[in-house]
Amino acid sequence: SRHTFEINGERWTVEGVSEELKEILRAAERASNDEAERLLRLALKLI
């Protein structure tokens, strides 16, 4: 499935992501810059 999210003013669209990964991306959208970066690094390990 496709998911579009915005982090630090940048929009991203990813396809074929699991519900778990979507949850991480949604958390990154709400997080501070440092926390968002940490969550994105974690998410990339899952891809």
Rank of each mutant, 00 (worst) to 15 (best):
E20C: 11
W12I: 09
L40F: 10
A43M: 06
L25S: 00
G9R: 01
L46T: 04
E37N: 12
R41P: 00
L42W: 09
L39Q: 02
E20P: 06
E6T: 13
T13F: 11
E15P: 04
W12R: 00
L46K: 04
L21H: 05
W12N: 00
E15A: 10
E37H: 06
I24G: 00
E10W: 09
A36G: 08
K22E: 14
E20L: 08
N33E: 14
R2Q: 15
E20Y: 13
G16Q: 06
E6W: 13
E19C: 07
L44M: 11
R11C: 15
L46F: 09
G16D: 11
R30F: 13
E6F: 15
A31P: 01
L44K: 04
L21E: 02
A28K: 01
T4F: 10
A36C: 08
I7D: 01
E19L: 06
W12V: 11
F5D: 00
E35D: 06
A27L: 13
E19P: 10
S1F: 10
L21K: 00
V14Q: 01
V17C: 08
E20G: 10
A36K: 13
H3A: 04
K22A: 12
V17H: 06
K22L: 15
I47Y: 07
N33H: 15
A28C: 06
E19D: 10
L39P: 00
S32H: 10
L40P: 00
E23P: 01
V14D: 02
I24F: 04
A31V: 07
I24P: 00
A28S: 04
I24V: 09
R30L: 14
A43W: 05
L39S: 01
G16M: 08
F5V: 03
E29V: 05
N33K: 15
T4C: 14
E10A: 08
E15K: 04
A31W: 04
W12F: 14
N8V: 03
L40G: 02
R11N: 09
S1H: 15
R38S: 11
E19K: 08
A43F: 15
H3R: 02
A31E: 05
K22Y: 15
E37V: 11
A31G: 06
L39Y: 07
L46R: 03
L46G: 04
D34C: 11
V17S: 06
S1D: 15
R41G: 08
G16E: 10
R38G: 05
I24K: 01
I47V: 07
E15I: 15
E15Q: 10
E37L: 13
L44H: 05
R30K: 13
T13N: 05
R2M: 07
R26Y: 09
E37S: 07
A36S: 09
I24D: 00
E19V: 08
L44E: 05
D34N: 11
E23R: 09
R11D: 04
N33Y: 14
F5K: 00
S1N: 15
A27D: 08
T4S: 08
R26W: 11
G9A: 03
R41W: 12
E23M: 09
R26G: 07
L42V: 08
H3P: 05
E6M: 15
L40R: 03
E10L: 11
R38I: 13
I47N: 02
L40K: 04
S18L: 05
L25Y: 02
L25G: 00
K45P: 01
R2T: 15
L44G: 02
L42T: 06
T4W: 13
H3N: 10
R38L: 09
E23Y: 08
K45S: 15
G9P: 01
H3V: 14
R2F: 08
N8S: 05
A36I: 07
A31M: 06
R26K: 12
S1K: 12
S1P: 12
N33L: 14
K45G: 10
T13S: 09
G9C: 03
L46Q: 06
E23L: 12
V14K: 01
L39V: 02
E19Q: 12
R2G: 09
E15C: 12
L44F: 07
D34T: 13
S1M: 12
N33F: 15
L21P: 01
F5C: 05
A31F: 04
V14T: 05
F5T: 00
E23C: 10
A28D: 01
G16Y: 14
S1E: 15
K22D: 09
E19S: 09
S18C: 13
V14I: 13
I47D: 02
T4V: 14
N8T: 04
S32L: 07
S32Q: 10
E23K: 07
F5H: 01
I24W: 03
L21Q: 03
E20T: 11
V17M: 07
H3F: 15
T13K: 03
E15T: 08
K22W: 13
R26D: 09
R41A: 12
R2N: 13
I7H: 02
T13D: 06
V17L: 12
T4R: 03
R41Q: 12
R11Q: 12
E6I: 15
R30S: 13
L39I: 06
T13Y: 11
A28T: 03
R38H: 08
H3D: 14
L39F: 07
L44A: 05
L40S: 01
A31H: 04
E6Y: 08
A36N: 03
A43R: 00
N8G: 05
E10N: 08
E6V: 15
T4N: 05
F5E: 00
L25E: 00
E19M: 06
I7V: 08
N33S: 15
T4D: 10
S18F: 09
I47A: 08
S18T: 14
H3M: 11
K22Q: 11
E35G: 03
T4P: 03
V14A: 05
L44V: 10
R26H: 14
A36V: 07
G9I: 02
A43V: 15
E29I: 05
E10Q: 13
S1L: 13
I47T: 04
E29P: 01
N8F: 06
E37D: 12
K22N: 07
S32M: 09
I24S: 01
K45M: 13
L25V: 02
S18H: 06
A36M: 11
L21Y: 04
S18W: 09
A27M: 13
R2Y: 15
E6H: 11
A28V: 09
E23F: 04
I24L: 12
A31R: 02
L44W: 09
S1G: 14
R30W: 08
I47L: 13
F5Q: 00
L39G: 00
S32G: 11
H3Y: 15
R41D: 07
N8K: 06
E23S: 10
T4K: 03
L42E: 08
R11A: 08
R11H: 11
S18E: 04
L46E: 06
W12K: 01
L25R: 00
L40W: 08
